[in-house]
Design a binder for these strands. Sequence first.
DNA 1: GCTAGTTTTCTTACATGTATAGAAACTTAC
DNA 2: GTAAGTTTCTATACATGTAAGAAAACTAGC
Lengths: 225, 225
Amino acid sequence: MPQPPAPRRTAGRPARISREEIIRTASRIVSEDGVDRLTMRRLATEVGSTPMALYHHVRDKEELLVLLLDDYADRSLHRPEPPPADPRERILTAAVAIHDVLAACPWIVEVLTADDLLSASALWFVEQIVAGLADCGLTLEQAVHGYRAIWYFTAGEILVRATSARRRATDDRPTYRDRVFAGLDPAELPHLSRIAPRWAPLTAQDTYEQGLRALLDGLLDQAPG
Amino acid sequence: MPQPPAPRRTAGRPARISREEIIRTASRIVSEDGVDRLTMRRLATEVGSTPMALYHHVRDKEELLVLLLDDYADRSLHRPEPPPADPRERILTAAVAIHDVLAACPWIVEVLTADDLLSASALWFVEQIVAGLADCGLTLEQAVHGYRAIWYFTAGEILVRATSARRRATDDRPTYRDRVFAGLDPAELPHLSRIAPRWAPLTAQDTYEQGLRALLDGLLDQAPG
DNA sequence: GCTAGTTTTCTTACATGTATAGAAACTTAC
DNA sequence: GTAAGTTTCTATACATGTAAGAAAACTAGC
């Protein structure tokens, strides 16, 4: 049983492709042809390798997409100059910035359920939100929970909205939702029945910032002072 | 060109399988062996048919999963008896009920991004929320937007949480998040660095209801009175 | 040089969702 | 009865993610 003697530099076959090259090429494919055209086979040929070789650099396709999103966020998120003086406005600005960048990312649905947002530049915005909540009188624990609430709200808004947009794009039939809302029983569901004709346009409105302000108001009420 | 003469009953080859039978069988497979074992081929053989025959009853596998979720929600959602007298409590009760049932559904991630929740029994809860918000003084439009904010928050919480739980279950390596939080720069991100050691347990806590109350407080502040 | 060990790459194979084309089984009109 | 039309089902085929294992290309120790 030979001892594995701590290799000083690099043992083994030298790598011909790198994670960075994979991400760079995948990013180009996505921006040129859309996320649907990003296949492991095509990516492999475009980096001059074979599909299975990619799997030594990314765990699976989902991890690749998360890395792509981080890369995208790093390039798209720009810090506000100067940051607002009021901590409440700093929080709102940071959350809206994250929201707008993610909502503009067409392949977001495949990825966003995967994990927190953790790119280097995104973390700065997280810091702004946590710090702003703390500056408003919340404890650090409360601030973390508050940030998570904002993140849940943001991710949910983006996902629900992106999915229904995609569904409309790939299907011109009336949606299941439309059919359900057309057949509501006014006796059982009076409010829904009354608003049913306006449900689609109402829920198509962008109310992210309005909801975010409400959530933030409620979170700040938790502060002792 | 023969006129298609309005068929009185049913023309064409009679169906051997029904949408109901498909959903029933799929539901059994999922409850017995998990959602990963639900394949169109297996489902087809278990209903005594072929894979492509299923596609005359459901558009694709995603729609099948949405139908499964609706079926599950219909069987799992129970109305509170009696409903709380206070409208604010009615809203909270309804939202928490939806949340808890969905969060307990293991295959939720595959489906929840698909659409609103529209099963018959779920709609009753939506009605409760919209009605409660209206009773608290919001206009009907504001109430719909308020419901949507609650839905975004709820869906986001469930999705983010379910995904990270699944990731922990299928992978024992330290997560990407752990590695990022271990290497934060205290000068750049002071609050995050300070809370980093406690980030994992803090974000593992169930704070759904707490966040929901904050959001609801903020939404009700929008009421004119 | 040679051997063992390590890391990366390549080959092959399989399970899966589903597109496509056409056959089968019915109803209606004649 | 036959023919046309309609709906459902079947057979075949393909693109995709990726598991399994062998092969390749290196380093370290002799």
